[in-house]
Design a protein around this nucleic acid. Structure first.
Lengths: 229, 229
DNA sequence: TAATGCAAAACTGTATACAGAGATGAGCGC
DNA sequence: GCGCTCATCTCTGTATACAGTTTTGCATTA
């Protein structure tokens, strides 16, 4: 039961990680042969994985010229955030209407348990991971696999910018408490079956960071093209 | 300028069409070699196209066993309809808030022009195409490419069931008028910048057919496994 | 008859080869 | 010095081959 993951899956995971954290620079062409040697595989399975990433919006493809990293623009980030609103607001509505009482309680407990980490955590990546985990689990309460899948895809595509946005936020002052209380307000509304309230809280929660994330695009470019200090 | 479409795109289009209309039976295994001869290509580009379709939710993939058609269940259809609500309700909200005045007028005009076709059209496929076109254009008014992309994907995945649902509806009596007036009410709300109203109309419009579509799953199986009469 | 095991067939996963298209850069003319 | 052309080199697109795995079908046994 060790070899549960096939080779193409391994390649796919590796390539998606490279795409999410912009190891491929925006709009840059992707060299298949180089990847093949780097990942110790032939071009055939690499191309299969790249094709999946095209369909998922991580890469683009131009016939005759090959694969390219997706571009990075404020407009795109805005679109992705709006799509997140669409998915998560409806998900939280469904969660409020029909989410399992037990599952909601479990999530509330977990939120309470890790609340100290939210507020103390200096590692921005860990904070982002906690935030993403909450949103993912909340979405799962809707019981809708398709919404969950969409959210996972959107999260992967904006993670890099959220990280930059969150770093800047933390530089100003600790914001873990703001985040945890926002999450609690949303979940409280779900628990009291207040769909409208939960939706409004969720929308506000996401839109509050939308501007920050689009502004982070500039910093993203700076980070991507500047050598490690 | 004839050869604007590459071979892999041709294969991709052909395979997606086969997937949308369930030329691949639900859960059935897909034979790559057979497809290769059928579509006059080798397995390599076929597999690239199949991988994209996996990422888009049309097919599934099991390591070592190959590609399979997605399954067809009432639960899945329910999920897809709920996802449609998420996408289209938010899209129409954005359209009402910021949709271009001119574009809205154009769409209203077009809706008026083809209204007679809606009501008279006996060809269910044409009626469905008109309906889909309206929803797509309305979504485009939001100016959000990501929402448009999501909707296109969802439409492809539920088209077969919508067709069956619509056929049954038409068998009872002509429903083109119901549809066109629903579309008009949504668009009117958008035109008067009534986001809440547009959202409510859109939600009701989609949810009204949700039950029908999930019920159509049974008929879908019957049609798929019965020889053409 | 049903279950089991085995051998053959069919199919998948991936490396490799090669043709052709696209990019690159040197050399030449202006 | 600037731009254009052509040769060369690189990289993509796809066919094909083959190894390894899964499935299938037959024969044997209880």
């Amino acid at each position: 039961m060790a070899k549960t993951e096939s080779n193409v899956d391994r390649l796919y995971d590796a390539l998606r990680r490279m795409a999410t954290d912009f190891s491929f620079k925006p709009d840059a062409r992707i060299n298949e042969s180089a990847l093949a040697t780097q990942l110790d595989a032939s071009r055939t399975p690499i191309r299969e994985a790249l094709n999946r990433l095209v369909a998922e919006g991580f890469l683009t493809f131009q016939s005759g010229r090959g694969f390219f990293c997706r571009s990075l623009s404020p407009e795109l980030v805005m679109d992705l955030y709006e799509a997140r609103v669409a998915v998560e607001v409806e998900a939280v509505r469904l969660a409020a209407r029909r989410g399992d009482e037990r599952d909601i309680a479990v999530l509330m407990q977990e939120l309470e348990d890790i609340a100290p980490d939210y507020t103390s955590e200096a590692d921005t990546e860990a904070l982002l991971a906690m935030d993403e985990r909450f949103h993912t689990q909340l979405c799962a309460l809707s019981g809708n696999a398709e919404l969950a899948r969409m959210l996972a895809n959107l999260n992967d595509r904006i993670r890099y910018l959220r990280l930059i946005d969150l770093r800047r936020l933390q530089a100003i002052g600790p914001h873990g408490q703001t985040m945890v209380s926002a999450h609690q307000r949303i979940l409280d509304a779900v628990a009291r079956r207040d769909a409208e309230g939960a939706m409004a809280e969720m929308r506000a929660h996401i839109e509050r960071r939308r501007e920050g994330a689009t502004k982070a695009v500039r910093d993203a470019y700076a980070q991507l093209y500047v050598p490690e200090h």
